[in-house]
Design a protein around this nucleic acid. Structure first.
Lengths: 208, 208
DNA sequence: GGAAATTAATCAAACGATTGATTAATTTTG
DNA sequence: CAAAATTAATCAATCGTTTGATTAATTTCC
């Protein structure tokens, strides 16, 4: 049957993403990728040219998927605060549903050695940031938000989520807590959304 | 002169830290470390046993230096809010004065492959976290703070700072902005402290 | 429609280069 | 002189990549 014909190209991408997330780019060998994917080593270069080619392909796929998600929100005819809360919910869900990739992305962002990748990630993030910036700035201009340091508020929203993903033990001191457990993940998601929505509501709309 | 006698052991540590920060642990070779430090390759194993031995030594040194800083604050006879503001200022300064190391630490925290190192970093952070937790919890109990999700507030404080360090372009969209430039760093530091102090003040003390 | 030519996919084996580590000899130092 | 420090040379292992050959599928041609 045709359904049984597994796509080796995709198998390599899947295996590589898993391994890159777990042990980093340099920490993953092409032999590991070949073994994990069930493909021959030569297939990696055959399809992607090089190990870095695989990495870039993974990033491009993911980033493209990300970009297509948040656009609609800003067109809704709702208040700035409601928009922001929608964005927060979307962001928390997206990132906590892809914790491994998010970790990998941040790891890459903190390296100076692959500028092409750094710029790619930076640009992808910048786009989403501008969207949040627009929402908050609009809210300030129409008087519904206090005058705040917009970029810092964005850093707070994004930083909080990233911090939860990278260091979950910070949030839940309970030792047998596991983000890969759907039940635990749900708990963290809800807490993160509730906290960030509450925080932004109070900080942006409290008259003072 | 004795002043010219440079300590090869320390030179290796310095070079290794610099390279680990720039290109990661796996991305740095022992030959690079030797070249950068001016020492022979064998000296690395002579002094530290292995490449990982160098890494562990660097981490231990740094973590020990960190732990000795924040203790005094909690003994002061000042309000919970003032304590928290002192902690924020201390944290921002410490981390922005050691951006390279902080990046490396977070990179290591997001990998699953060196559990010994992961636990070491986790424990070091946990200690500082408990201190902040104590301050906020005390503030809640004596009625000066609102009832909030304490661990989430901590995630927000730490996450915001980390986010600024790892992705400075998020805060300043200006392209010719450089964290290694003392003047630019001062600007970011002040903005970060002002933002976080303002944020915590409003969120924790606004009656609602 | 069926032989011939072309293409894509896959494989085991080997490539040169680099890795972290170790040896044994030599120099420096107290 | 003996211990510590330093060196050049070398080790086996692994790295990412390339090779030439083989199979399976597709296209071309008469």
């Amino acid at each position: 049957m045709k359904t049984e014909k597994v796509d080796k190209k995709q198998a390599i991408l899947d295996a590589a993403e898993k391994l890159f997330c777990e042990t980093g780019y340099e920490g993953t060998s092409t032999r590991q990728i070949a073994k994990e994917s069930g493909a021959n080593m030569a297939m990696i270069n055959y399809y992607f040219g090089s190990k870095e080619g695989v990495f870039i392909e993974i990033m491009n796929e993911r980033i493209a998927g990300f970009a297509s998600q948040l656009k609609i929100i800003n067109e809704d005819k709702i208040s700035a605060l409601e928009k922001l809360h929608k964005v927060i919910e979307g962001y928390v869900n997206r990132i906590l549903n892809n914790t491994a990739f998010h970790k990998m992305m941040h790891r890459e962002l903190s390296l100076t050695q692959r500028p092409e990748m750094y710029d790619k990630i930076k640009d992808a993030m910048s786009h989403n940031m501008q969207l949040i910036d627009r929402i908050i700035t609009d809210g300030i201009e129409d008087g519904s938000f206090n005058k705040v340091d917009v970029r810092m508020v964005i850093a707070t929203i994004m930083g909080t989520i990233t911090n939860i993903v990278i260091a979950p033990h910070k949030v839940i001191s309970c030792s047998n807590f596991d983000l890969s457990n759907p039940k635990d993940k749900k708990i963290i998601k809800d807490r993160a959304v509730a906290h960030l929505q509450d925080l932004t509501t109070v900080y942006l709309t409290t008259k003072r």
